[in-house]
Nucleic acid binder design. Structure first.
Lengths: 338, 338
DNA sequence: ATCCATACTGCAATCGATTGCAATAACGAA
DNA sequence: TTCGTTATTGCAATCGATTGCAGTATGGAT
């Protein structure tokens, strides 16, 4: 393995000069710079990131922390997660950062101590802010650069990037209403930040349509298809004669509910229309295809990264909620005449 | 930030002794050790991993590289991926390693140089060995510790952990045969290592059943539901009068195919039975529920980690293929009397 | 009393870069 | 000719640990 010292010797300059030359520091004579660079190239020299880290106190690494739901032990809508993770990875690579991944199921290490103080990472990206998390709040009182994917409260003490969950949900439910639905259930756990917004959007839509809210129609449901299936069987079947629409806080839940309904002989969408949220890969390929709200994963990932880097540059970064897109498919395609 | 020097001073010993004491080196007097440890605890001292890395030339970090399919730009069956990634993360954490994640879409950096030589990682886990990959072969000629998730050729020059794809596929197809299917199509891209095994299993089953192989029944299909849908429409519809079974190399493909068939008015499973591979979350919740082959993600992840650590300890690690489990569901539940 | 093995402890070098500051050379101005 | 600039370069300290080797003290054996 070549070291800077070797390169310096080969170029017949001091290590200091070699170091500067490699980073194209203009204080070094141009010819010298070129010579050093050329030699480094020739011998395939790369600076040792560990040594550099130790000296500069920067790691050029970002830690991405994926929070899991304490109850379901499941990440907030898996497929969505993998997508955004991919985007983040690409963006970070592109900016010259490595990505340290941590899936935090239990409340484990203290992030600041472990990642920042120990110089394992220069900043944090936290995905899946679930129920109100103590640790995130705590971070915001420190000087740790970090961004969160989730829901903005409007007056966050930290930078949040997320989807316009509320208006997206409103659009979906309004669409159900436009399809003639008058009794629409909500499936999801509104104690979860993002879901809460979707729940509010659901209410918004009902209110706008002059439809009454009905507590019986609000089912606290985990993120899984399984729970969507169960809760539908247990709590929705009795309401069936009246019920004519379901808005599920995630596609997984929606698909679970749809399964239960189909087994029970309910016609979707004729008797009951369904809409979900996320647009997971399967949504377009189930029967009937699922109407859903698609999040902008790509811009989400990019924004997370750029806002984090902004913070690391000492600038401030505002929270931002991205527009979503309603995809209407068969699961909500009812005749108007109800 | 506390440094080892601070702790040493507080404990009134030299840095050397402090360093040894913290690692419980028995050469240090027990009382001294305890004293140092106690003080370190009290002041919440943690060794700086960067400094340690520089000195010991180990990073206590493993790089996980996810290979994407060059064509579909998609990872080998996403949902499966996230699961195994989670397991690996947990295992590594448990063993005191950090996890550097890299999603390599393009042929980017030279892994050995970037991760190993630069001491960014002590070992590599490569997931998604797709079509024969030059880079993996190359790695095996170096002394880099690494393991691969994928298919074993039986005479690998490196350590592979994977599923018993061949026998799993055979079980699935034999099951279709037992359900009365006589004309079974295969959907998948057998140029991909793992899929090739599933393809062979498909052939095994047909052969055992005394059924003829038919090139028309073998459709090269990408990993996506979309391609499953398209290829089914384009190439399977003409064969429909005869065709009575499909074995898809992944659940995504199977669901795409099922969608196409249902739209076309084909009764699943009565007219045509379907089986997939992976058991993604949605498989149990589509209609009809999908018969599939479940991989042992948990043991897979654990094995990958343990075999890698074994290698890093200088031991050799054998390849290993894990048993899979056939889950029979409605999509293949036909009456026997055909 | 002398010597040696044993048990600890600490000095100083080392890992591989980066950087503040001093040193040198070269050049034009006075 | 002398002196202040400017342009370049290098010395040496530093980041925070780990470790080979040497040094000291203690106790037991002779």
């Amino acid at each position: 393995m070549m070291t800077l010292a070797d390169i310096a010797a080969l170029a017949e300059v001091s290590e200091s000069t070699a170091s500067r030359a490699l980073r194209d520091n203009p204080v070094v004579n141009k010819e010298t710079r070129l010579k050093v660079q050329q030699i480094a190239q020739q011998y395939q020299f790369n600076v040792n990131p560990t040594a550099r880290s130790l000296r500069t106190q920067k790691s050029y690494t970002i830690a991405v922390i994926i929070l899991f739901d304490a109850k379901s032990q499941q990440a907030i809508s898996d497929p969505f997660l993998l997508e955004i993770l991919g985007v983040i990875a690409d963006e970070l690579t592109h900016k010259g950062y490595d990505m340290l991944l941590s899936t935090s199921k239990t409340k484990d290490k203290d992030w600041k101590t472990y990642y920042i103080d120990a110089k394992r990472a220069d900043g944090l990206i936290i995905i899946g802010q679930g129920e109100h998390d103590q640790r995130i709040e705590q971070l915001s009182h420190s000087k740790v650069p970090f961004v969160v994917w989730g829901a903005s409260s409007g007056h966050d003490s930290f930078t949040v990037v997320g989807s316009q969950n509320r208006s997206g949900a409103e659009a979906a439910v309004s669409h159900l209403v436009a399809q003639g639905c008058k009794h629409i259930a909500f499936l999801g756990d509104y104690r979860h930040n993002e879901i809460e917004q979707r729940y509010l959007g659901y209410q918004d839509a009902l209110q706008k349509a002059g439809l009454a809210l009905n507590a019986d129609y609000e089912l606290i449901t985990d993120f899984t298809a399984q729970d969507g299936y169960l809760k539908t069987q247990q709590q929705l079947f009795p309401l069936l004669p009246e019920l004519d629409g379901i808005f599920a806080a995630s596609d997984a839940i929606a698909l679970g509910a749809m399964k239960a309904l189909q087994e029970h002989g309910v016609q979707v969408p004729q008797q009951l229309a369904i809409a979900g949220f996320d647009d997971i890969a399967m949504s377009a390929y189930c029967s009937p295809a699922l109407t859903t709200v698609k999040q902008d994963t790509i811009n989400g990932g990019k924004l997370l990264v750029s806002k984090l880097l902004q913070q690391m540059d000492g600038e401030q970064a505002e929270s931002e909620l991205l527009p979503v897109r309603l995809l209407t498919r068969q699961s909500s395609a009812r005749d108007r005449r109800v």
